[in-house]
């Protein structure tokens, strides 16, 4: 007789002395249950893994979002830099000596000072 057969016969057979049918399978099941502590640990670990999974996904999402924002801002920066350059050019044109001289002489009626008119502050 093979071992499993023997075992199954034992499981279904009644106890020779007491005549009570032994249901070993139920006891086995009971034995495989976790203790409360283990249960708690498992829940905690599951929470931890879930949490880290969610935070990983979230950070990835944030990263993409920031990437988009960054590329938008880069574009904006380039635009503003270009405007800045154009304004600097305009300022340089307005500040050019030719322009200033014609404004000073023609519009404001200013003229070059003579040496006596120049007072240098010490």
């Amino acid at each position: 007789m093979t071992r499993p057969e023997k075992l199954s016969r034992m499981m279904v057979s009644r106890n020779a002395k007491t005549g009570i049918r032994v249901r070993n399978s139920r006891f086995k099941k009971r034995r495989s249950r976790f203790t409360r502590r283990q249960g708690l640990l498992i829940i905690l670990m599951m929470l931890f893994f879930m949490g880290s999974g969610i935070s990983y996904v979230w950070s990835n999402f944030e990263k993409t979002q920031i990437g988009y924002d960054l590329s938008q801002l880069k574009k904006e920066e380039m635009r503003l830099q270009e405007i800045n350059r154009k304004l600097r050019l305009e300022l340089a044109l307005l500040k050019s000596p030719q322009n200033l001289q014609s404004k000073a002489v023609k519009d404001l009626g200013l003229r070059q000072p003579t040496p006596e008119q120049i007072v240098m502050l010490p």
Binding site: E82, R85, K86, R88, L89, A92, K95
Partner: peptide
């Protein structure tokens, strides 16, 4: 620091 030559787009 006055611009004498400047490039713009």
């Amino acid at each position: 620091g006055n611009e004498l030559a400047i490039s713009v787009q």
